[in-house]
Write a protein that binds this DNA or RNA. Structure first.
Lengths: 229, 229
DNA sequence: CGAATAGTGTCTTTAAGACACTATTGA
DNA sequence: TCAATAGTGTCTTAAAGACACTATTCG
């Protein structure tokens, strides 16, 4: 069936834009390319989709293979877009389906079998440097999507550990949006939004200052009204 | 290079969700499939991407080929998402990149070389019936995207003729959202949003009632604050 | 104690929604 | 004339933003 090939054959890959918060920076997961083309450059993790594999499954598999991140249930994963310029890969005609993921600060990524080295780097540094292929475009699109999604969904919680404080959640917004937010108004706003967070009853003391209540993510997925940028 | 095929070969297609407003209904462009599989069923227009062709270019080409719509400048076209379930096409492994388009009420579509017949049908009827492949899913996703986009962009104007009244614009919102909107508040809201529409100075009388001013699309692309559903 | 952070109360401003009212047309 | 649609004014309510104030901790 594939032998008489009545259609032009394309290579299909998935690439991942994985964001997390580390050291007061919004960071993106990158690998150092070990092979030509773009050998030695930073790139987004990714790889070929298997011939019998779903796209989202391929994204999760590549993430686990290249980085050791396999806690899929603690990760938000969504399709970002598809990049298919005829000249994007000099070797062959390649279509890349990009996925966007939000992760809590996990253990250090472990360079897997495929990748020379997987590492978190600050998004602004990644965008300032040279990324392989069209990955700078994909990253910029992912950043804009992430910024927009925080406005009208509860996905900011997927950047947090299972239990978090309102201040933790605020830091997510501040780092992703690169702004400052009034802590008092933010606190009221989050509490007033039904289903965004639910209190555990516990408190935690983080150095100096009054201890803060701990929360878990609530049942809501969308915010009415949104948190405006 | 393609001969030693170090990657699994995929067929890549584009499918189009093209919306317009006709006869007080939100309509989607469909074709009647002339070949197996799903012969005789309704489907979204689309086809194979050429090996040296950009994805968006392929979408515009397929639209012109199958329907005769070639006024690309009077059309909003954006990528919707990519559908790649291994079982979506029984013939081969196919990845479909779906595009979403908004069109003003154009001339009747002309069935092109590929399609048995291209026709506009009401979106709710299309969703109620059986569409080929996973096109019902794609259409539902396109509808939800269109609904969301009207909230925070000025794209409602791309459903209108070059000159339109505020009531025309309101009908777009009402039909896409399947709601009714207070004409008076809507009028004030649109006028208050800088760059959404600009007056031509002309008026037009549509049957009975006071004649309405004519407007063109303004320079703004995004709405602050949004028009809330 | 003071510095720092958590959390509440309250005022001002902005914008949405309800709806009375005027304006201008065709039948 | 009336019915219908365009467009304005105004009141009420919801929610954002500014910011004073209290609460609780560490050094």
């Amino acid at each position: 069936m594939l032998a008489d090939m009545a259609f032009p054959p394309f290579a299909v890959t998935v690439d991942l834009v994985v964001f997390t918060i580390r050291n007061d920076d919004l960071c993106v997961l990158t690998i150092r390319r070990g092979e030509a083309p773009h050998k030695g450059k930073l790139a987004l993790p990714g790889g070929f989709v298997h011939i019998d594999e779903d796209l989202a499954t391929a994204a999760a598999r590549e993430l686990a293979e290249e980085t050791g991140i396999d806690q899929i249930e603690r990760l938000h994963l969504e399709q970002l877009g598809t990049y298919g310029s005829p000249k994007r890969d000099p070797r062959m005609r390649t279509i890349s389906v990009a996925y966007l993921a939000f992760a809590a600060d996990l253990d250090d990524p472990v360079a897997g079998s495929d990748a020379a080295a997987a590492q978190w780097i600050a998004v602004d540094r990644a965008l300032a440097g040279k990324l392989a292929f069209d990955h700078a475009t994909i990253l910029a699109d992912g950043l804009e999507r992430a910024r927009a999604k925080l406005e009208y969904t509860t996905l900011a919680t997927s950047f947090c550990a299972p239990e978090f404080t309102i201040a933790d959640l605020r830091h997510v917004y501040e780092l992703v949006w690169d702004t400052t937010i009034d802590p008092r108004n933010f606190h009221r706003k989050i509490q007033a939004t039904a289903g965004f967070v639910k209190a555990t009853g516990e408190v935690v003391s983080a150095g100096r200052g009054r201890p803060a209540q701990l929360f878990r993510a609530g049942a809501a997925t969308h915010l009415h009204p949104p948190v405006v940028r």
